[in-house]
Amino acid sequence: MIFKQLHAKQESVILSYPNTDTDSISILKTYQFLGYYGQYPFESYDTNHVYELPFQKGYKSSIIQGYDSDFSHNGSFSAKTLNFDMKVGDTVVAARDGLVVKIMIDKYKQGTTKKYRNDGNHIMVYHQDNTFSQYVHLKQYGNLVEVGDTIKANQPIALSGFTGWTTIPHLHFGVYKPTDNGLASIPILIDTLEAKTLNRGDVIIKE
């Protein structure tokens, strides 16, 4: 088993082979490759950090889906995530300081079945304690930041949209830790509340 930690804009040869002796298909059948953001090995994160609500002060929203919901908030990646009611074009802000590490913003499709799962525009942010936050269903080309930008909590980062697997416009928000099997969602404190206590229909106003 080979583990290799790479830093931003760094690359490394993990495995090489003669083109004339072995083809790429046989290599993929013999070896398994896995990569993810963050430091390895992952040890712990700041469980006491209080995240900001991902919209501007004075904004009123309601919870569309909370933790461990039947519709789509299940499995290690999505179980501990929140859906906030937001209109298309409303401003999404950063819930925590961090570094923008991924943006997908060119999608325009929306649908109510899982085949649209990969059409949700999103931004991913890396945090100091080796966790990540993700903002999903953004408006096409609605990003207000770029990969590599250092951002602050409450900074506008995108416009809410209606893309991907969803029945209504909303913002899907979650925080994740890296594991050997990829990112896994984690419970957080948000606006001084335990996010797990937020349920469908709860109304929130950001003070």
Score class of each variant (00 low, 15 high):
residue 5 Q to V: 15
residue 91 T to E: 08
residue 176 Y to K: 04
residue 139 K to S: 11
residue 34 L to S: 14
residue 6 L to V: 13
residue 17 Y to D: 08
residue 187 P to W: 06
residue 81 T to K: 01
residue 159 L to K: 12
residue 175 V to H: 03
residue 40 Y to G: 05
residue 110 Q to F: 11
residue 21 D to K: 15
residue 130 N to P: 11
residue 110 Q to V: 14
residue 35 G to D: 15
residue 79 A to G: 00
residue 18 P to Q: 11
residue 88 V to F: 03
residue 9 K to G: 02
residue 92 V to R: 03
residue 17 Y to M: 07
residue 145 V to I: 12
residue 55 F to R: 06
residue 134 Q to K: 14
residue 27 I to M: 13
residue 71 F to H: 04
residue 77 F to K: 09
residue 151 I to S: 07
residue 167 T to W: 01
residue 112 T to A: 10
residue 9 K to D: 11
residue 73 H to C: 09
residue 198 L to G: 06
residue 114 K to R: 12
residue 170 H to S: 05
residue 48 N to G: 04
residue 201 G to N: 07
residue 168 I to R: 13
residue 74 N to D: 07
residue 106 D to M: 09
residue 42 F to D: 03
residue 104 M to R: 13
residue 197 T to N: 08
residue 188 I to M: 08
residue 99 L to I: 05
residue 160 S to G: 10
residue 40 Y to T: 07
residue 120 G to R: 00
residue 163 T to H: 03
residue 84 F to E: 02
residue 38 G to C: 12
residue 120 G to Y: 02
residue 120 G to C: 02
residue 55 F to T: 04
residue 119 D to K: 14
residue 113 T to V: 04
residue 16 S to M: 06
residue 111 G to P: 10
residue 45 Y to F: 15
residue 163 T to V: 05
residue 168 I to L: 12
residue 168 I to V: 15
residue 144 L to D: 10
residue 31 Y to V: 02
residue 31 Y to S: 05
residue 30 T to D: 11
residue 177 K to L: 04
residue 130 N to G: 04
residue 56 Q to F: 01
residue 182 G to D: 10
residue 81 T to V: 00
residue 179 T to S: 13
residue 153 A to R: 11
residue 7 H to W: 12
residue 52 E to V: 02
residue 91 T to R: 09
residue 139 K to A: 14
residue 157 I to D: 11
residue 94 A to C: 05
residue 203 V to N: 05
residue 35 G to M: 14
residue 74 N to T: 08
residue 188 I to R: 02
residue 195 A to N: 00
residue 200 R to T: 13
residue 207 E to H: 11
residue 96 R to H: 15
residue 159 L to H: 14
residue 97 D to R: 00
residue 206 K to Y: 06
residue 41 P to M: 14
residue 157 I to V: 13
residue 135 Y to P: 09
residue 4 K to E: 15
residue 141 Y to A: 09
residue 158 A to P: 03
residue 178 P to E: 03
residue 39 Q to M: 11
residue 143 N to F: 07
residue 177 K to S: 08
residue 120 G to T: 03
residue 30 T to P: 03
residue 135 Y to M: 07
residue 82 L to G: 00
residue 103 I to C: 04
residue 168 I to H: 11
residue 185 S to L: 05
residue 130 N to L: 07
residue 39 Q to I: 09
residue 175 V to E: 04
residue 86 M to S: 01
residue 135 Y to N: 06
residue 13 V to S: 10
